[in-house]
Computed example of a mutant assay.
Amino acid sequence: MGDAALVHAEIVGETARGGAHPREGWTVHPNLELAVPVARAVNPISGTNWEGIGVRPDVPCDADTALDRELALVAARLA
């Protein structure tokens, strides 16, 4: 489950798209917007981030079955 110091939740589902850099957008023309990254998220332990890579789930499964899968995991842990 990742770096123990940073674990706050178990992720169930598909790998995220990987949007780690906050951005600001400006309308250049009614049909054109400029989006510019204005910061960079950094993992304090690894020194890396997830931009373009995504966050890998702890329990990989299809998005449409993720809720049922998590509910089953919770029920099993509570049993």
Rank of each mutant, 00 (worst) to 15 (best):
5 A>M: 14
25 G>I: 15
14 E>F: 00
33 E>C: 12
6 L>W: 04
65 T>I: 11
61 C>R: 01
48 T>K: 09
40 R>N: 11
49 N>H: 09
48 T>I: 11
53 I>D: 01
35 A>C: 10
78 L>F: 00
22 P>M: 02
32 L>H: 08
65 T>Q: 01
41 A>C: 09
59 V>Q: 07
14 E>S: 14
41 A>D: 06
25 G>E: 13
21 H>E: 11
4 A>H: 03
32 L>Q: 12
72 A>Y: 02
41 A>I: 13
71 L>K: 06
3 D>G: 05
55 V>N: 04
62 D>W: 01
35 A>S: 12
66 A>G: 04
12 V>W: 05
65 T>L: 04
54 G>M: 04
57 P>R: 02
25 G>N: 06
15 T>K: 02
49 N>L: 01
26 W>Q: 07
76 A>L: 00
30 P>Y: 01
68 D>N: 12
21 H>N: 10
38 V>K: 06
1 M>C: 05
4 A>C: 09
34 L>Q: 10
16 A>T: 14
26 W>K: 13
67 L>G: 11
2 G>W: 13
49 N>G: 06
5 A>R: 12
60 P>D: 11
16 A>I: 02
72 A>M: 06
64 D>C: 14
76 A>G: 08
75 A>T: 05
52 G>T: 08
74 V>K: 14
8 H>K: 15
40 R>G: 03
2 G>V: 14
9 A>I: 05
32 L>K: 14
44 P>T: 06
43 N>I: 10
54 G>C: 03
63 A>G: 10
52 G>C: 13
63 A>T: 08
25 G>Y: 00
62 D>A: 12
4 A>I: 13
79 A>N: 15
63 A>K: 00
58 D>F: 11
12 V>N: 01
42 V>L: 06
16 A>C: 11
61 C>M: 09
46 S>H: 03
21 H>C: 12
76 A>R: 00
48 T>R: 01
63 A>H: 13
61 C>H: 02
17 R>M: 15
79 A>Q: 11
73 L>I: 04
70 E>S: 04
18 G>M: 07
53 I>Y: 03
12 V>Q: 09
69 R>A: 03
3 D>Y: 15
30 P>I: 12
2 G>K: 10
10 E>S: 07
45 I>C: 10
73 L>D: 07
9 A>F: 02
23 R>K: 10
79 A>M: 14
6 L>I: 05
33 E>V: 11
